[in-house]
Amino acid sequence: MKPFGYVAAIDSEHAVALLAEYGKGAKVLAGGTDLLADLKFSPHPPPDVVVDISRAADLKGIALTDAGLRLGAMVTHSEIVHSPLIAEAAPALAEAAVVIGAVQTRNLGTIGGNLITCVPSMDSGPTLLALDARVTVLGPRGRREMPLSELFVGPRRTSLAFDEILIEIVVPTQNLHKPAAFQKFGLRKGQALALVNAAASFWAPDGVFTEPRIALGAVAPTVIRAPKAEAYLTGRPVSEEAMAEAGRIAATEAKPITDFRASAEYRRDLVAVLVKRALAGAFGRVTPNQKDLAS
């Protein structure tokens, strides 16, 4: 690797102070699984200094707060997989985390790093979008909070300023226990990026699709929602045909590309199938009293 300096932050405020100190020459280091792999082969000059946030205590931990289920940006994929809290309140998050890379990568890689790297095939994005997650960012101008969708700008581009860090992701209280599921299709079952991934969530009071959410990965410049498919489902009785039709509609909303992993047509077909499966998976999590549980 090319030479760079290293400083460690003890907490998020310290990290922001260090970023302010070193300016554009600084780069945040979380688990390092994306950043170090990039730095090893990048033709660009290295950062002056990496600001290691992996020791920042306030960026860690999974907890229930007044706002909802809070995941610190430094929560690793393995922690999500093994969290009893997540298994209880938002199991689809664990479904998405367990298919990221391999055990070793999941032990290092963080949810914050996954979102900020912002590749369209990220596996954390779809489920969080389908659960209307919100994120909090800290910078020299203080905190700001926004829907996750506003973080994503383009491939490898977020709305984060160079001197800001992501500090937490919150699944709002009203969406805890919302039936949701995640689906991924890669060229192998493990250690493979998604050709397409998808997540879906909905409530089903009286067997009717309510507040459906469909999110797709790897088929557009960022992870996206499929609003037409959602509109189609809203108010419709839950049925397999409706799920399949929503999948077909979502496929028309996807804007996949052809690359060395798969063709655009193949990806479009995958969208239809994975959306249907995600909806079916979510339906499997519907319990009669779910609406009450959440309120």
Binding site: Y6, L29, G32, T33, L36, Q104, T105, N107, L108
Partner: peptide
């Protein structure tokens, strides 16, 4: 278990 190639010694 971690990939030692993806972790800085400093970390």
């Amino acid at each position: 278990a971690v990939n030692a190639c993806l972790m800085l010694a400093a970390q």
